[in-house]
Nucleic acid binder design. Structure first.
Length: 463
RNA sequence: UCCCCAGUAGCUCAGUUGGCAGAGCAAGUGGCUGUUAACCACUGGGUCCGCGGUUCGAGUCCGUGCUGGGGAGCCA
């Protein structure tokens, strides 16, 4: 089954060579005058290849004329300059083999625009559409860009566990992992007896690899994770998934300023990468999904990010003429409307907010000298909101113990995390980037369920 | 989880005051054409989301459940 990818044919522009392509029919247009135009797509690029099927082909009447959207074919022939408009080259087939039929009466995809809601119900077929093919290629390119960015800078790619024993990472509801018989859970003192469970103690799916990443950062210097993350929150929004992918760099010998600098350099790198390497797909998103998609990315690559403190942000918001549903005052967590106002109305570009009140942030963030704020930072982008959240970590043993107690957590549960501060502690920092939110931002797609191949949300684990 | 909106043909949707179920696209048939989401004509196609209620009569009104969408919270 030797084949050449359509992306290679269309990028080389060479004519005259004899090739074999394999793919799926997007549409067919007939000429009763003696041939048929078959658009074949193989997923290697957005464009389809126009295959010319002459009626002299032995299976023309029996098979070619029955080809419809969704059929799979193998087509061999000469690549030639196309006399028609809309494509530079086409394949003049000398042999077309039908690999698989798709009954048009029941095949769900039609050569028309479908709603994203409908396509979600046929996640096994939606990658055959232009939009989902483009999303898959952009996801792939961004994954590559992320690894390349960190590898070029000497970061170690770290595999943190999916199953975790700590029930106390503090980042939301967790999925339980168990082999106990749920119909007859063994009990002890009225509660489930985890002594009889697989790990002899409660286990969950991870909500973050950060704590483990800190372990390796305090040995290897710079590390990053890139893997699946799970949140059992009953979130029903266009920006939340129960299973999503997260990128988490963690750097030893690094403070918050270094953390922010890396986050900005990182974003600029990957946005420049997608503009350069996904030109055709980005043009597609720009045309059909978000007419400002490319311009937004170009601005991001060239513009400076606005960096300000939480206190400065609250100051601007409290003086703003805008009427907010939630009034602004120092100490509260900023609402979506506040973040969007700062980002979209005041600065009209991505912003970095730093030094949040410690009460609204996690226990592991380093307390500032004012004792009121912590060295946290959020990168906010237009439309999506928070895309990166990070902090310098508390590296002082006594302060960290104090913070854990303040948050009503048990220091014993964090014994190994605390020992990192007892033995050779160093300043360190890191951040987390939601991969799907990144893809949303790049493509302009409004719903996060359309930028991951198989979305998991409350009430939905199909496919 | 809360607030708002929606659910009608394979898909996208219209459906007036409560009075015979509609269009475009898709599909089937025929025609035409180096075509570009091709075009033209004809044909077939319905559990009006489920359950209950009001009414002579419900796609339409009321209650309830389910599913989907938008927003909020949680957050990435």
């Amino acid at each position: 089954m030797k084949r050449i990818r359509i992306a290679q044919i269309l990028s080389s522009k060479d004519t005259g060579s004899h090739v074999t392509v394999m793919g799926w029919v997007r549409t067919r247009r007939d000429s009763k005058g003696g041939f048929s135009f078959i658009e074949v797509n193989d997923g290697s690029c957005l464009s389809s290849l126009q295959v010319i099927a002459d009626d002299k082909l032995p299976n023309y009447k029996d098979e070619i004329l029955r080809l419809q959207t969704g059929c799979s074919v193998k087509a061999s022939g000469i690549i030639a300059a196309s006399p028609g408009k809309g494509q530079k080259v086409e394949l003049q087939a000398d042999e077309i083999e039908v690999l698989g039929w798709a009954d048009p009466a029941v095949y769900p995809l039609q050569k028309k625009r479908h709603s994203f809601e409908f396509l979600r119900t046929i996640a096994h077929l939606r990658p055959r559409t232009n939009t989902f093919g483009a999303v898959a290629r952009v996801r792939n390119a961004m994954s590559n860009a992320i690894h390349t960015f960190f590898q070029e800078r000497g970061f170690i790619y770290l595999h943190t566990p999916i199953i975790t024993g700590s029930d106390c990472e503090g980042a939301g509801e967790m999925f339980k992992v168990t082999t106990l018989d749920l119909d007859q859970v063994p009990k002890k003192n009225g509660h489930a007896d985890f002594d009889r469970d697989f790990f002899n103690e409660p286990a969950n799916l991870t909500v973050s690899g950060q704590l483990e990443a800190e372990i390796y950062a305090l040995a290897m210097g710079d590390v990053y994770t890139f893997g699946p993350t799970f949140r059992a929150e009953d979130s029903n929004t266009s920006r939340h998934l129960a299973e999503f992918w997260m990128v988490e760099p963690e750097m030893a010998f690094c403070d918050l300023d270094g953390d922010v600098a890396l986050a900005i350099e990182f974003l600029k790198y990957i946005f420049a990468y997608v503009l350069k390497n996904c030109e055709e797909d980005m043009k597609f998103f720009n045309r059909f999904i978000d007419s400002s998609a490319i311009e937004t990315l170009e601005n991001l690559v060239s513009q400076d990010f606005e960096i300000l403190t939480y206190t400065e942000g609250v100051d601007i918001l409290s003086k703003a003429k805008e009427k907010f549903e939630f009034p602004v005052n120092w100490g509260m967590d900023l609402q979506s409307e506040h973040e969007r106002y700062l980002c979209e109305k005041v600065f009209k570009k991505p912003i970095v907010l730093m030094d949040y009140p410690k009460e609204i942030k996690a226990f592991y963030m380093k307390v500032n000298e004012d004792k009121k704020t912590v060295r946290a930072m959020d990168v906010l982008v237009p439309k999506i909101g928070e895309i990166i959240g990070g902090s310098q970590r508390e590296d002082n043993y006594d302060v960290l113990v104090e913070r854990i107690k303040e948050m009503d957590l048990n220091p014993d549960d964090y014994w190994w995390y605390l020992e990192l501060r007892k033995f050779g502690s160093v300043p360190h920092a890191g951040f987390g980037l939601g991969f799907e939110r990144l893809i949303q931002f790049i493509t302009g797609l409004g719903n996060i369920r359309d930028v991951i191949p198989f979305p998991r949300t409350p009430g939905n684990v199909s496919f």
